[in-house]
């Protein structure tokens, strides 16, 4: 094929241009589908509970990801400020993942357990009442809006379609018992979703309002779960070096 032939056939030229410029993308994306050595083998990572699922949806609805990332990079300053760098394994049930790339606020990947539920409620309602220099907006409606959990089972079914092991059949449930243990497997049972959600809300009462399930309840439950699933004290600091 002569050069002149290509230059004078715009249709052919378009096709060839597309082929050339897609090489870069293909080289970066295609290997992700079959490289499996980069996902760390760790214990403890589980899919979200029904309450956390709803909390995560609110995290998306309120656009938290626009200002907060959920990915601690392996740099010294981030290690000191936020803790252990994020693992690929920690986002394996996150669809879509919330790594983000914009940090107007701090990274939230290891937020869970850092502050009390009470602090989160106060901070989401009126951030400047606890952090005067904060520029985060107020989210007072979370505390006054009742959580709509009527469709939580559907939401889990949708996640299941993307590969999250929420169980429908008895066989799936048993596989979960084997993989995550009884307590977690019960939480992943879609038929019990609503009951589980109400039970977690009642037992832990994240929003501090007894007998009521507010949107605050779900969001704080989700925030308190972030980055807490892997117990890093059982791994040496160089345990995850071999996965990169």
């Amino acid at each position: 094929m002569r050069h002149e032939h290509i230059e004078t056939n715009s249709g052919l030229m378009i096709l060839l241009i597309l082929a050339v410029i897609s090489i870069g993308g293909l080289v970066e994306i295609v290997p992700l589908f079959y490289i499996n050595e980069t996902v760390e083998k760790v214990e403890g990572v589980r899919p979200n509970t029904p309450l956390e699922v709803r909390g995560r949806d609110l995290y998306l609805r309120e656009g938290c990801y626009l200002c907060h990332s959920q990915q601690i990079r392996p740099f010294r300053d981030e290690w000191l400020r936020y803790g252990h760098y994020s693992l690929a394994a920690e986002s394996q049930y996150d669809h879509p993942f919330q790594w983000g790339s914009k940090r107007t606020g701090p990274d939230l990947a290891r937020l869970g357990g850092k502050y009390s539920d009470q602090w989160h409620v106060q901070h989401l309602k009126a951030p400047r009442s606890v952090v005067p220099q904060s520029i985060m907006p107020n989210y007072p409606w979370l505390l006054t809006t009742k959580l709509d959990y009527s469709d939580v089972a559907d939401r889990m079914r949708a996640l299941r379609a993307t590969g999250v092991p929420y169980s429908v059949t008895q066989a799936e449930y048993e596989a979960n018992v084997k993989k995550f243990g009884q307590t977690v497997a019960d939480q992943l049972d879609i038929s019990q979703a609503e009951a589980n959600l109400l039970k977690e809300a009642r037992d832990k009462n994240f929003d501090g309002i007894a007998g009521q399930v507010t949107e605050m309840e779900a969001l704080v439950a989700y925030l308190q779960s972030l980055g807490t699933m892997v117990n890093f004290s059982q791994y040496n600091d160089d345990e995850f070096v071999k996965f990169r």
Binding site: R73, F75, R76, Y85, V241, F243, R244
Partner: peptide, 10 residues
Amino acid sequence: NTRSLLLSDL
């Protein structure tokens, strides 16, 4: 890799 480099930085 960036992870071993972090340990050396620390």
